[in-house]
């Protein structure tokens, strides 16, 4: 007997989206999310959703309306975050999130401009932009998601890949020393520097909402699990196992010198708020100049 198999139904984008749209609005945070875009593409157990969630919770905590906030992201898994938020967002070219954000924050100083991007985008391709934006102290809030590799393109080694870690381009172990992102940001002149992990969701919300209120260049590094790109070759298990590892290994040290903020998954992960200082911003300096500061005359 020949079994008849019905022809596969063509995948209808419209119907698929409308099904997701039907679920939209049930969750209280859905006002911040574009209708029909959730579920997002991130892998199960990925920490990026936690960071996006924390950003939304921080907006809610500070009661910043959607038309007063803007998110700019570069390329990579984290870069997708811009597409999910129901506000003015830019998905920019690789590594160039910070120049876009600098321009936006100068022309629209009333906006809360946030750069939400990954470690590869901000520190490899966009490394120069980041250190100079920090040096100038432009009013941009940077949330850098560190998952130790380039997740979207297949788990290649990044400037944050720990020594001896295995990735798809370093199958016998990485021989390059990683950046200490918080130390680099602090040395470049950021006025607010913190590091958290996806496990510290509440601290992260607190930290992001603190950064919203801080004029100048703020930098928050968030360490997240990447079960697909980083955990698999390094035998670290699923996203939940990585979260348990964060719980076990992290130590909170507020005010520690960022140079000593160790990040070693085998020994300890130092988290906390390391730098919080006051400094005139780039826009302040220009305004003074244009209004004819008597001291300069």
């Amino acid at each position: 007997m020949i079994r008849r198999v019905p022809p596969t139904e063509p995948f209808e984008v419209e119907r698929h989206l409308s099904k997701n749209e039907a679920l939209h609005g049930i969750h209280p945070d859905d006002t911040y999310l574009k209708p029909g875009r959730i579920p997002h593409i991130w892998c199960p157990g990925c920490g990026l959703g936690v960071v996006l969630n924390a950003y939304i919770q921080a907006l809610k905590a500070r009661e910043i309306p959607q038309d007063r906030a803007s998110v700019i992201s570069g390329i990579g898994c984290t870069g997708r975050a811009a597409g999910y938020l129901n506000m003015d967002t830019y998905h920019t070219t690789h590594g160039r999130a910070i120049p876009f954000a600098t321009g936006l924050s100068l022309i629209r100083p009333e906006l809360s401009v946030t750069v939400l991007s990954g470690d590869g985008d901000l520190f490899a391709i966009g490394g120069n932009h980041l250190i100079h934006a920090a040096r100038r102290n432009v009013n941009v809030k940077v949330i850098c998601v560190n998952n130790f590799n380039y997740g979207m393109t297949g788990g290649q080694s990044a400037p944050t890949t720990p020594l001896e870690a295995r990735t798809s381009t370093t199958p016998y172990g990485n021989v390059e020393h990683p950046f200490n992102l918080v130390s680099l940001a602090a040395a470049s002149g950021a006025v607010y520097v913190a590091r958290w992990t996806a496990f510290h969701a509440r601290f992260l919300v607190e930290s992001i909402s603190e950064a919203f209120m801080k004029p100048g260049f703020t930098f928050i590094e968030v360490i997240t699990p990447c079960p697909t790109g980083y955990n698999r070759p390094n035998k670290l298990g699923a996203g939940l196992d990585m979260m348990k590892l964060f719980r076990e290994k992290s130590e909170i040290h507020h005010g520690l010198d960022p140079n000593e903020a160790e990040l070693d998954l085998k020994r300890r992960i130092v988290v906390g708020k390391f730098v919080d200082l006051e400094k005139p911003t780039f826009a302040d300096g220009y305004e003074k100049l244009m209004n004819g500061d008597p001291k300069r005359a």
Partner: peptide
């Protein structure tokens, strides 16, 4: 509300 804050998928509150 910890589950709401930590859920990456906006699936619980």
């Amino acid at each position: 509300n910890l589950c709401q804050v930590i859920c990456p998928e906006f699936a619980i509150y």
